[in-house]
Design a protein around this nucleic acid. Structure first.
Length: 696
DNA sequence: AATCCCTTGTTCTAGACAGCATGTC
DNA sequence: CTAGAACAAGGGATT
């Protein structure tokens, strides 16, 4: 497809002129379908559009009709996938392209072969691959957003293996990356043309704030009027009173909340804004019934024109905060790294409060790349004359580091394939899908990884790999590179083989069938880490309870797993959410996250039980109970569409205990949960019953 | 004896991907 | 390498 055809399509969405990096990519042969690309340019400078041009080039023909080739767009977050899905659907369905979203908890359609453009995550694509996708040969282009995530300790290895697999096919790969230290290396490995550029649509002024003055890297200085002795407050007010808005990046959730509390901007709000903010605050309080402490704090901040944003918020909370910020109602968001990746949420002034962060190896500097991505948030196209990225330096050491961060190039990225958990999961995946059938395949595959490309010497990784291979063989996931039934199933379930082994051992050694024991088994897996912290005062009680269940090991990790199991038990016992949160000292978002993981792992445990011939009924029940957070007696009601834990409990207490009761007492049901919903439920059931009759 | 102030000790720390089933005239 | 806030506990002085 010639370039001008692409430009014509872009005009359909109002894009008249390309930006410099986009032009550069075209000049270097982006539309040559056999040429891979690595695009390393700043946030918000039009990376995605480069990927889109490549997609259009493959998916549409001269007459703007589908070519029936496939394109895949890989993003790092589910939230981002949903956002892109909506965007692409709006843009490309008019040409007859069928767009699908395929992420963990949501599938557009089981049969993705009918779609042209698939939006997904690396893990999901990997998982699809394990379930044997038959359409991979139709794929002719893959765009990988935030490809530098290959550097991520826990998830990078998966992306790397996926890319290594994709490279074997005749597929054009377009990697989109933030600015990184060693783009050449990554590009060479990908056999890709490299585009590096620092062009930005809005100028970014980088500066360090110290002693009441912002010193910009370009030499300018700006004195900040001190209203009080809170540096962040003064910086925020300085921006907000000119009609701007800010994002403050913090290194802890508590820090983000505390900063947000201190930023009272009432003085700068119009009455109209105050009224609307009140509505937003009420919306926040309506998410959870009753509202938790966190909800109340957030609502109070919002009345002041500020907000916090971190993993403790539920998705609904986050969405409300993000939207209110986009609508310029909320003037400042104090956040953890939740906002440093992905999401399009620009501001006029991005403030970095902390340069270090606590890790499992103690306090460490936050990578230059991450901070550059944070400050890259500054500058709203068409709204701000320029963006300001400011680091707050508390002392001389901070000042030096800030200067480094703002002027030096980011760290190089490194393969994280040495991560044992990733290696176990990935090698089993490759063996289960018969992509690796013997030692030669294995060696050949490893040689093609980024790891091998970077380190050359394979001796170190060979040791790791042999260990994993031995483990897989010993635990009967495979015999002589032939996957066993167990191995295949574990690969499909997408759990760490080590977790599968824990589960199987646990099921075999089980002395009783208490619900809590099953919850304990899944809490012991790596996938559930980190577990809840156990305080000294709790230890003896926990050990006591564990002994009664026949658990014999009382390492601190075991106690933590058991405490987590107890929390999950409370969840499925319908203990009110706010009570659970208080008791275990966590926030709503974290509870949801834990529960989501637990549902997945309980499903895996059920499958493990089936495979080794153990009772799978209890895990099956627990899976449903975890999903809804409910007791056993209302499971049947929960299986009915439109009935969740609250409606089910109401109905149950009123004597409606199963599907039959619903059908026989529609008016009673309607009086409890409303007529509209009852009608919907009956409609749904009617169809189901029709099908059942056919079977009889 | 109750209260207050200051010092010392202790605790705690970011984020977020993955599974589904169901046989068959 | 590259921490610092928040809170609890304890000691001593003051009222």
């Amino acid at each position: 497809m010639p370039t001008n055809k692409i430009l014509e399509i872009l005009k359909d969405f109002g894009i008249e002129e390309l930006r410099p990096p986009q032009k550069k990519a075209l000049e270097k042969g982006l539309l040559d379908k056999n040429k891979n690309f690595l695009i390393s340019i700043p946030t918000a400078s039009g990376k995605t559009l480069i990927g889109e041009m490549a997609l259009i080039n493959h998916l549409l023909d001269e007459n703007k009709n589908p070519t029936n080739k496939k394109g895949i767009f890989i993003v790092p977050l589910k939230a981002l996938a949903s956002e892109k899905y909506e965007e692409f659907k709006n843009k490309y369905e008019r040409y007859g392209l069928r767009v699908a979203l395929s992420i963990g908890d949501y599938d557009e359609d089981e049969d993705l072969s009918r779609y042209h453009l698939i939006i997904t995550t690396a893990e999901k694509l990997d998982s699809l691959w394990r379930h044997k996708i038959d359409w991979i040969d139709d794929v002719s282009v893959v765009v990988v957003d935030e490809i530098h995530l290959i550097n991520d300790e826990s998830r990078g290895g998966t992306l790397e293996i996926l890319l290594t697999k994709l490279k074997k096919f005749n597929i054009q790969i377009i990697g989109l990356s933030a600015t990184i230290g060693n783009p050449e290396e990554l590009a060479n490995w990908l056999n890709a043309e490299l585009i590096v550029d620092d062009w930005r649509p809005v100028e970014l002024k980088k500066g360090i704030y110290k002693n009441g003055i912002i010193e910009f890297i370009n030499g300018e200085n700006r004195e900040i009027k001190a209203i009080n002795n809170n540096d962040i407050y003064n910086l925020v007010v300085d921006c907000v009173k000119d009609g701007g808005c800010c994002i403050v990046f913090c290194n802890t959730k508590r820090g983000a909340v505390n900063e947000a509390k201190k930023l009272n901007l009432k003085k700068f709000l119009t009455n109209e804004e105050k009224r609307k903010l009140k509505e937003v605050a009420e919306e926040i309080l309506s998410i959870l019934e009753p509202p938790t402490e966190m909800c109340k704090t957030l609502a109070e901040c919002i009345l002041n024109g500020s907000a916090f944003h971190h993993a403790g918020l539920t998705y609904q909370h986050r969405k409300i905060v993000e939207d209110a910020f986009r609508n310029k109602l909320i003037k400042v968001i104090c956040c953890t790294p939740t906002l440093s990746v992905g999401l399009n949420l620009p501001c006029r002034r991005a403030i970095v409060k902390d340069l270090t962060r606590y890790t499992n190896r103690g306090m460490r500097y936050i990578p230059i790349m991450e901070i550059q991505q944070c400050i890259g948030r500054a500058g709203r196209l068409g709204l701000d004359p320029y963006g300001e990225g400011i680091i707050v330096a508390k002392n001389d050491r901070d000042y030096l580091r800030s200067y480094q961060v703002l002027t030096q190039k980011p760290e190089p990225i490194y393969s994280k394939l040495s991560n044992q958990a990733v290696l176990r999961t990935q090698l089993l995946g490759l063996i289960a899908t018969i992509e690796i059938r013997d030692e030669y395949d294995l060696e050949w595959f490893i040689r093609n990884t980024f790891y091998a490309y970077q380190y050359g010497n394979l001796r170190e990784v060979a040791k790791n790999i042999n260990e994993v291979i031995r483990f897989l063989e010993e635990k009967e996931f495979m015999i002589d590179f032939i996957p066993t039934e167990l191995g295949k199933r574990v690969a499909e379930l997408y759990i760490d083989p080590l977790s599968a082994k824990y589960m199987i051992d646990g099921l075999n050694e089980m002395e009783n069938e208490d619900d809590i024991y099953y919850l304990y088994l899944i809490s012991k897996t790596l996938e559930m880490m980190p577990n809840l912290r156990v305080y000294k005062s709790e230890e003896l009680n926990l050990i006591d309870e564990m002994e009664n269940l026949g658990i014999k090991s009382f390492e601190i990790e075991d106690l933590e797993a058991f405490k987590t199991a107890k929390m999950l038990y409370d969840w499925i016992s319908e203990v009110p959410e706010d009570e659970i949160l208080k008791k275990y000292k966590i926030e709503p978002g974290i509870l949801r996250y834990k529960v989501e993981n637990a549902v997945w792992l309980m499903h895996a445990l059920k499958e493990m039980a089936k495979i080794i011939g153990k009772n799978s009924e209890i895990p099956e029940k627990l899976e449903i109970r975890l999903e809804y957070g409910a007791k056993e007696d209302i499971i049947e009601l929960l299986n009915v569409k439109y009935i969740g834990r609250v409606r089910a409990r109401k109905l149950y207490n009123a004597g409606i205990r199963n599907v039959e009761d619903i059908i026989n007492n529609p008016s009673k049901v309607a009086s409890i949960i409303g007529e509209k919903i009852t009608k919907k439920i009956l409609e749904d059931l009617g169809i189901k019953f029709g099908q059942q009759k056919l079977i009889f």
